[in-house]
Simulated assay, not measured.
Amino acid sequence: MLKIKDDIDLNELRKFGFKTGKEWADSGERCLKGAGFEYMHGWWHKFLMDEEDENKIAYISEAYDIPSVQISVRTDFHRDIYVDVAIEGSYHSSDLDVVTETIYELTKAGLLEIKKEMER
Rank of each mutant, 00 (worst) to 15 (best):
C31W: 06
R74L: 02
E88R: 12
G17P: 08
H78L: 12
K46T: 03
A109K: 15
M49P: 02
Q70P: 00
D97S: 11
R14M: 06
M1Y: 05
K22W: 07
V99I: 15
L32Q: 11
S61I: 09
A58L: 13
K15W: 04
S27Y: 10
G36W: 06
T107P: 00
H45V: 03
R120V: 14
K108W: 03
V73D: 00
E23D: 13
S61Q: 09
T100K: 07
A109H: 11
G21C: 10
Y64W: 14
I60L: 14
A35E: 15
D50S: 09
I114W: 15
D7V: 01
D97G: 01
V73C: 07
Y104K: 08
D95W: 09
E117W: 14
V83R: 05
D6G: 05
D9K: 11
K3W: 04
T107W: 02
A86D: 10
M1V: 12
K115Y: 00
I87N: 11
R120D: 15
S61G: 13
G17I: 01
L111D: 07
F18T: 06
K115W: 00
I60F: 10
W43C: 05
T75D: 06
E23F: 00
E51H: 03
T102L: 02
E29S: 08
A109E: 14
S27I: 11
D97Q: 09
S72V: 08
A109G: 14
V73P: 01
I71M: 11
L111H: 11
I81Y: 01
A25C: 12
E51W: 00
R120K: 15
F16C: 06
W24P: 00
D26M: 10
